[in-house]
Design a protein around this nucleic acid. Structure first.
Lengths: 246, 246
DNA sequence: CAAGACTAAACTGTCGACAATCGACGATTA
DNA sequence: TAATCGTCGATTGTCGACAGTTTAGTCTTG
């Protein structure tokens, strides 16, 4: 009768997922720089697979916003423009406020401890002089908040945004000169969440994210990234206005 | 030399996009009911294309949340669970507050008039006794707000959410008994946006969306949709914690 | 020397094919 | 009788191929 003995749960072949992860990594780490072309056959050969899974993975990344598809020309790594950065941070600010308030509402002793532990990790990591790791652990903290908020769509959205943000940060370089600063600024945020006052929470999120936004924006402008007000890519699948046939 | 004669913009071959739109329509209109299996070969045959574009389109819809992919089993229309509805409305409330405030900030006489005209359209549509059309025009109004907010990511997100919402509404049936009610409730919202007070705006959005949320939730519970707290689908592509090699 | 025409290579979009796997159904066994 | 096993059709995952288009490079021409 098959006792529910544990769970080896064999690894799915799932080439598409793997390719998507690998591509994401490559983009986020800057190995595929913004604007560069993603040649399907090249990726396929390099990974030892055929083009079909690569295309499907590329489509996913396109929907996620890391790639842009130009018909008959292929996929390109999305270019970083000031406008993109502003859009990303604007959206992030919007959802992180919300997630933080939700997290406060759902906060348990365990989840609170998890957040505290993560702040400790941030402090410890600060001594390592490993910017990539620092970014990673920072991401972990904020992701925790979204996990506690307990809305899977919100979490997915954050992950998608985070991938783009990593691209930005990777390109721009380290964010703070003092890595301990990064750790310290999380404490009042957590305090506000523990206190549970929505206004205080959003104020702290605004300060926290807004600071990063301004910093990144400043650096981006120094690097003279294009503004990018042009239409760029038509984007998502819009539901056309058709005479519904229900 | 090709004078830049604007705009026929021939329908790109772009099979993937077309298939995605068609599939979206079918799902939203309930022709592919929640939980049903999407057989690649079947769709392909029916549309007269091969499986490759169908798969790519399905992957897009998966990322969008309309489909769920079970490895080695195929794609299934996402089941409607109470939890999904709550997540969708929660996220929608979050972004629509934000978009409305942004829209107020960006409001011009033209965009204001566009919103007013759309309310007129809503009133006119109310006499037609065409629920599908009513939903369509309602969607238009809210989409306008996101367009005015002028953040492409926000807009795309709204479109994605809207597709899921249509599925919900299509399944649950008409939302209001009095279609004029739906039109009237937009007026104070627009008034608040014109006034430009963030607090008043969010309050009105909360009321407006919250009302729909409660209505839909009530109907969903009457239909005894499953709660769906189970893990369901792992979801987005997470960036694994790897030793970065920069 | 620069602008344009032409050619060849590279690449995308799409297709059909094949092996591996899943699910159902009936046979087998305790 | 109920549970397990084996078989078979249906379906997915993946691949290689081919036509049409884009791109890069070369050659021509004013």
């Amino acid at each position: 009768m098959s006792l529910p003995v544990g769970l080896p749960a064999v690894a799915d072949s799932d080439l598409v997922g793997q390719v998507a992860r690998i591509l994401t990594q490559a983009i986020v780490q800057g190995r595929l720089p913004p604007g560069s072309k993603v040649v399907e056959a090249g990726i396929a050969r390099e990974l030892g697979v055929s083009r079909a899974p690569v295309r499907e993975a590329a489509r996913l990344l396109e929907k996620q916003g890391l790639l842009v598809a130009k018909p008959r020309r292929g996929f390109f790594v999305r270019k970083l423009e000031i406008r993109n950065i502003d859009e990303i941070y604007d959206l992030r600010l919007c959802i992180e406020r919300h997630a933080s308030v939700l997290a406060a509402r759902n906060l348990t002793t365990e989840s609170r401890d998890a957040l505290r532990r993560q702040i400790d990790v941030l402090h410890k990591t600060a001594d390592l002089d490993d910017p990539a790791r620092q970014v990673e652990e920072d991401y972990r903290f904020h992701r925790l908040i979204f996990e506690i908020a307990d809305n899977r769509r919100l979490l997915r959205l954050f992950d998608d945004l985070a991938a783009e943000l990593r691209m930005v940060i990777g390109l721009i370089g380290r964010l703070y000169d003092d890595p301990h600063e990064i750790a310290r600024t999380h404490e009042p945020l957590l305090a506000a969440i523990e206190a549970g006052h929505p206004e205080r929470i959003t104020a702290h999120v605004d300060y926290h994210i807004g600071h990063a936004w301004r910093e990144v924006g400043k650096l981006a402008r120094e690097l003279a990234l294009p503004a990018g007000d042009a239409a760029e890519a038509p984007g998502g699948i819009l539901i056309p206005t058709n005479g519904v046939t229900v």
